[in-house]
Amino acid sequence: MSVASEPLLAIRDLTVEFDQGDHFVQALHGVDIVIERGQSVGIVGESGCGKSITWLAVLGLLGSRARCAGSVKLDGEQILNRPDRELTRIRGSRIAMIFQDPASSLNPVHRIGRQIGEVLMLHRGLTGRAARAEAHRLLDRVGISNALQRLDEYPHELSGGMNQRAMIAMALAGEPDLLIADEPTTALDATIQAQILDLLHELRCENDMGLVLVSHDLGVVADMAERVAVMYCGRVIEESPGDRLFDAPRHPYTRGLMAALPDIDGPKRRLKSIAGTVPPPRHLPPGCAFGPRCAHATPECATHRPDLRPAGAPRHRAACLHTDLIADSLDTGLAVPEAADAEWETA
């Protein structure tokens, strides 16, 4: 078996349960995601859908109260539930991760240069001058002006966008094959978000690095990802190449998310909200978790949990019993304003 035939990362039937003392609460109910070398994959979903927990589980960062099962293979090698000692060799050097709030992910009492140097020593054995030179190069590469001076500054002396760049520099320091960016621009302003997204795109192309972009923002994911997976209540409910997903979503939840999103172009329309709220993980409905909020739900949906099944195009799968029906009934009307909403063209 050659390594090249294996995908970079293959998550199969990943489940996570949290020990609450007297009972377990299941956060992930069997997640399947495959990432090829150099591919960018977007993960979208609302809070509590498990989009961050998936990646924390992959890296073994959930702590002792979490019980993970299933399989996570990096280049064909099982990495789920491996001892910390082995995972430290993977974290940072094979798979790196950056988080939403750079200010709380960086150590406030150490200079930026030292924090990058730590990664360089750990994963590439660089120390002293060599490490400093490399840290300088990395800061320069992520577009921090005056990089030499910034090496000796503390995180509080940098702006939010600069700190996120420094985080990205740290993530790159280990030369990872896969970068997981968990809401990397959520805490940043619009113009800074544009800078960071451009930077991530450039770095991915330059280093042939896989990128996982976790975001609640459909726009950010649409902009960046070749493949997109939509999560709801601890499951992937739809996955497809990005263009196909945004042109022809098949799962009612994905359709709902897109109809709920206000747009900047085109005519103004009344937003279509999704009724109800996300059920708490302890009280998931039987059958399809989206069933109680779904306009297309049938009695069958309350008893059968749908698995991901082909949804009308290659590599497009959706976990819904009624994908064919939805395709026929809705293909024309997603973003078209209704006649009743004409009054919304306000003065």
């Binding site: 544009a194 459909l218 902009d223 263009d243």
Partner: peptide, 19 residues
């Protein structure tokens, strides 16, 4: 700079320099 599903693939963003 606003990313939206409708605008994907059209990288005509004006990226401002600096903070």
């Amino acid at each position: 700079a606003i990313p939206t599903p409708a605008r994907r693939g059209r990288r005509e963003r004006i990226v401002l320099q600096g903070d």
